[in-house]
Each structure stands twice: as C-alpha cells, then as structure tokens.
C-alpha cells in the first residue's frame, strides 16, 4: 500500500531546510495550516497530510478497527515518516494530533527530533483530580452535533471525489470541503478523540518538547496546558495571547513564530 497516497502527503517549502511535519486535529484537514505554512516555507521543508477518512486521504483505506483508537493514527504517522525517509523530524501536532505525536515518539523516539504540541489535551473528560473541561454527556452532545451537520457531505458526491484522487480540485470547489467527512467516520474519530485518556503516555516522551497553549481555549483550558507541561520531562510551555482552539488560524504569526523558534534551535542554544 502506498502510504503517501493513503494519507495525501504533501511536501513543500525549502528543499534543503530542516523538516517539519504539520498534523491537524479532529475536524478539518491539512488546510488548517494554510495561514502558517507561508510563514515557515522559507526556512523549513514542510510535510503535511490528511488523516485517513478525512480530506484528500484514500477513504477506502479506512477500517473501523484501526481508526477507532488513537493508536491507529499514531501508527500512520510513523508509517509516513518511514515512507518519506527524511530522517528525524520536528513533529507539530495540533489538538488530538499532538497525542499521536506523543504516542509515536514513545514507541519510536528515533523518528523525531522534537515535538511541538499545539493546544494538546491528553484527556478531555474531568476526572476526580483532573480538569479536562468536559463531561461524558458533553461529548455525547458533540456527537449529536456531528449527526445534525453534514457540511456538504453527501453519499452521492463521495464516490466522485474518492474516485479522483489525482484531481483534488474536484473536491476543492465544494463549500465546506475542508471539513467534509463521512458522518459515520467523523463519529468514530470523535469518539476516539474525546473519550481517550493518554495522560500516562506523556511521561514516556524523551525527545525535546514544546507545549503551545492559548490564553483562552474552551477545548484545552490552561489547566490542561500546565498538566501536559509538567507531565513531559524537560518540556517548555509557551502561552499565546490568542482566543480559541486553533491559533494557527486565529493567530498565525504568533503560532508560526512559536514553532519556528523551537524547531530551528540547535542543541547548544538550549
């Protein structure tokens, strides 16, 4: 199987620059990085991809067994790195993708030079001594929201788009295409994302890590940012003066700067 086709892997930016992999979270596709990539492209080689079942990925490769747990997505990250063969790279994971980076780096630290965790959360649901920000009922409510919003997805359009992976412009023309996912796939992804608990995995990270949080984020509040920072040995925490869960869209300059300053730093500067 061609992993690069499966995950719609796109490589751009400076050909001889250090490699940064950008992984978007639950919801939309690699277009999430659209405002940030122009700011990084002069200095870095940039790898982007879509999670299987979303965006321009090969939907026929989607299997519920594999993608109903976050491990499946993390394995995909390692397979992409392996297929690219670009050597250790800086992994930037947004939201749930930061957990994919944490898992993958725990299994194969040699694949990564550094990790950047953008608005990460290892667990969304409150626990007795942990504030994740949500209750199990809240997550059910989100699943209902997914059910009532199809965002331009329709079964009759899907085969046309799936059958033309070499012509992504076909899907580009459609409104809401950045977030269009088969509702049944979105449901499985949402459950995997919001019902998982990866707190114990944080301590296994041994590669240099920077946590980037937003000052006002309803999905990953500051308590969670602090938790992740404390749980990953030697990690650093940067707080952006930004609102919302997606600073790469609401504060692209600050976000690009926070990524670049960490990714470009050599060991002796630390």
């Amino acid at each position: 199987m061609d992993v690069l086709h499966r995950n719609n892997v796109v490589v751009e930016g400076r050909t001889d620059g250090p490699v940064i992999m950008l992984a978007n979270g639950f919801g939309c596709d690699q277009n999430m990085w659209r405002l940030v990539t122009p700011l990084l492209a002069d200095e870095f080689k940039i790898v982007q991809f879509d999670h299987v079942g979303t965006g321009g990925s090969d939907k026929s490769a989607w299997r519920e067994e594999r993608y109903s747990s976050l491990d499946g997505y993390a394995r995909d990250v390692l397979e992409i790195c392996d297929a690219l063969g670009l050597g250790p790279l800086v992994f930037v994971g947004h939201s749930v993708s930061s957990v994919f980076g944490v898992l993958a780096a725990g299994w194969e630290p040699g694949t990564f030079e550094k990790l950047v965790l953008l608005t990460p959360s290892p667990r969304y649901i409150d626990d007795h001594d942990y504030t994740g920000g949500f209750s199990a009922e809240d997550i059910d409510e989100l699943l209902d929201s997914l059910d009532s919003n199809y965002l331009g997805w329709s079964a009759s359009l899907a085969p046309v788009i799936m059958g033309n992976p070499e012509r992504p412009e076909l899907s580009e023309e459609l409104t809401n295409s950045f977030c269009r996912v088969d509702p049944s796939i979105a449901r499985v992804f949402a459950r995997a994302t919001f019902l998982s608990d990866n707190r114990a995995d944080l301590a296994r990270v041994t590669v240099p890590t920077r946590v980037i949080e937003c000052a006002h984020d309803v999905i990953a509040p500051r308590e969670v940012g602090a938790f992740v920072h404390e749980a990953i040995p030697g990690s650093e925490l940067v707080t952006l003066d930004a609102v919302g869960h997606c600073p790469q869209l609401s504060a692209p300059e600050q976000t690009a700067e926070a990524i670049a300053s960490f990714a470009a730093r050599t060991d002796d500067e630390r």
Partner: peptide, 28 residues
C-alpha cells in the same frame, strides 16, 4: 451548549476563517 462549543471550535470557526463564510450550521 457544551457540545456546540466543541463543534464550533473544531468545525465552525476554522471554516469561517478558511472560507470567509459558513452557512446553515445546526447548533443549539
């Protein structure tokens, strides 16, 4: 609602930024 907030952050706000408009989204 809280579920709506999650949906807003993961879908609505990104689409609005990327497309300049979003229409007909069901929320509570």
């Amino acid at each position: 609602t809280v579920g709506g907030k999650l949906y807003h952050e993961t879908h609505y706000a990104p689409l609005l930024r990327l497309q300049g408009e979003v229409s007909g989204i069901a929320l509570e």
